[in-house]
Amino acid sequence: MEDTEIINLWKSYDKKLEENLLFNKKNAEDITKIKVQSFLSSMKPMKIFIVLFSLVWVGFVDILIFNIFDVASPFLLVSAAIHILLTKLAIGIYLYQLILIYQVDINEPIVATQEKLVRLRSTTLWISRLLFLQLPVWTTFWWNEVMLHEWNVFQWLITGSVTLAFAFAAIWLFFNIKYENRDKKWFRLLFTGIEWNPLVKSMELLSQIDEYKIENDLLNPVKNSTKRS
């Protein structure tokens, strides 16, 4: 089939649509009267709440660490410090997501808008990585100096194994929770359900966007290098 035949075929479909498609003016008019949410505004309240709640939490733990610094067990201090550091990084990502939400404008060209939307969703994976990285500190914060002196080998073997297992899992997940592993069974198991499926699909779109951008750069090297400089 030639190009003109394909275009004519589409035109005939278009004509059929024009003749038969009815516009429900009343319903469209109702839209102009109701207060509608902008594209991503529904995501904002929850993210703002999480940021505020997390700030209160890290503030509380910071003050706690400061006040008990001289008397607390070093295990508790180090565990809490790691937890707080990783939580602060996660808050940073949430703030970045809020900035992206404010920046997304669906009046902009498709590739630019979709890239922001996809990056917004894919940063959620970074939050998961950071949260998993905290796993071992939840097994060490209660350790104390008495345990060091009084526990026998068997007790240490069990406690140490649990911590080591958590540390191994945390590091492994940190390095393996990524787009490339989206088809692995364990990934699907961790990131399944209504909330995560759109994320996985977003990542699939990201590869298309990247491919479009790479080709754009390859086809217009001079123009793009000037734009970048």
């Binding site: 594209f39 902009e108 977003s202």
Partner: peptide, 16 residues
């Protein structure tokens, strides 16, 4: 622009 942007984003929302 808007229709395509919404359509491409819309399918990801699924049942939500």
């Amino acid at each position: 622009r808007i229709a395509l942007n919404v359509a491409i984003s819309f399918y990801r929302k699924e049942k939500r």
